[in-house]
């Protein structure tokens, strides 16, 4: 044994001891986006006449499990013991949000894929194996969409709750985080739909996104107030976020660039003052991704629980 270091080893001394790297924020973003796509497309399926659907709703339902798979791949890359990934499904631990999430994802995939198949029934009916499936579930399409609104919301909230239950990391230990990530995932999904939508449908998605971005801004405000007025641990962690090394990114990229600027642009676009631009949804998506990165990294930085 030649090593002579005997003091406390932590991520501030040795960065390789950091808990989570880029993979987890990417997973949380993709999970939220996939959940949002499922919730919004299911909501439209329940409330609107399918005959009037544009390709956007169908494409969103199809994209939802695909985007989730991208996130799951990132999460897989984060696992230190990759060949043991199946161990998530040999136990159910009610006190572990990660366990809940693992099992909830097992519900998400078949139901989201089934909904996508039903929405593409005209194209898929000729596939022999799917004909019977489509015929069986067609009468239950709205009920399936109703269930999917809840499954999607569950996954959206889960991406925040996963962090919020770690009270050892006071920045994350805030129950509003689940709501923030749900709303952020839904606004990102609506922004993506706005991007994909044909010109005549853009106003609808823009209005929905304005509503969701406003709610997200409100939820983030509550998150900040809750942290600043919380215990000494929570206070210092939140002050580190809003005034420390991450603050410039948090204020400019996540809040100003990811919420306030696109909210203003969407207002002008829906009023017809300016043309719909792909820059607006791109800003929302970049803002949503940056929010996950900043919260995951800031949550692991000083000051930790003391």
């Amino acid at each position: 044994m030649i090593e002579t270091v005997t003091n406390k080893l932590n991520p501030q001394v040795l960065p390789h001891l950091q808990v989570w790297g880029w993979e987890v924020p990417v997973y949380l973003f993709c999970g939220g986006l996939a959940a949002g796509l499922l919730v919004i497309s299911s909501g439209i399926l329940i409330t609107r006449n399918e005959a009037n659907f544009s390709y956007t709703v169908r494409l969103s339902a199809l994209l939802s499990p695909i985007v989730l798979s991208v996130g799951m791949f990132a999460l897989f890359l984060d696992l230190a013991y990759k060949t043991h990934v199946w161990r998530f499904y040999t136990a159910f631990v009610p006190t572990s949000p990660m366990s809940w999430g693992s099992w909830l994802l097992m519900l998400f995939y078949p139901l989201a894929i089934l909904q996508a198949v039903l929405l593409y029934e005209k194209q898929l009916e000729s596939v022999g194996a799917l004909k019977g499936l489509i015929g069986f579930f067609r009468p239950w399409k709205k009920l399936l969409a109703f269930v999917n609104v809840h499954i999607g919301s569950g996954i959206g909230v889960y991406t925040g709750i996963l962090l919020a239950t770690f009270y050892a990391r006071p920045l994350w230990s805030n129950s509003v985080l689940g709501l923030v990530f749900l709303l952020s995932g839904m606004s990102s999904a609506t922004a993506l739909m706005l991007w994909m939508a044909p010109e005549e449908k853009k106003r609808f998605y823009s209005l929905v996104d304005m509503y969701l971005l406003s709610l997200e801004a409100f939820a983030i405000t509550v998150l900040i107030i809750g942290g600043v007025t919380g215990s000494e641990n929570s206070h210092l962690a939140m002050m580190n976020l809003i005034t420390g090394n991450f603050a410039p990114w948090f204020w400019t990229v996540s809040l100003l660039g990811g919420i306030l600027v696109p909210l203003s642009l969407e207002t002008l676009e829906t009023m017809g003052k300016v043309r719909f631009s792909p820059i607006t949804p791109a800003l929302v998506l970049v803002g949503g991704l940056s929010l996950r990165f900043i919260l995951v990294f800031a949550g692991q930085a000083n000051p930790t629980f003391f």
């Binding site: 696992l79 043991h84 990934v85 990660m98 050892a168």
Partner: peptide, 19 residues
């Protein structure tokens, strides 16, 4: 044998006792 290396335990520990 059961560990996946997901690091949830590391994030949960208030004493940073794990690696």
């Amino acid at each position: 044998d059961l560990c996946t290396g997901c690091k949830a335990c590391m994030a949960a520990c208030p004493y940073d006792a794990r690696y």
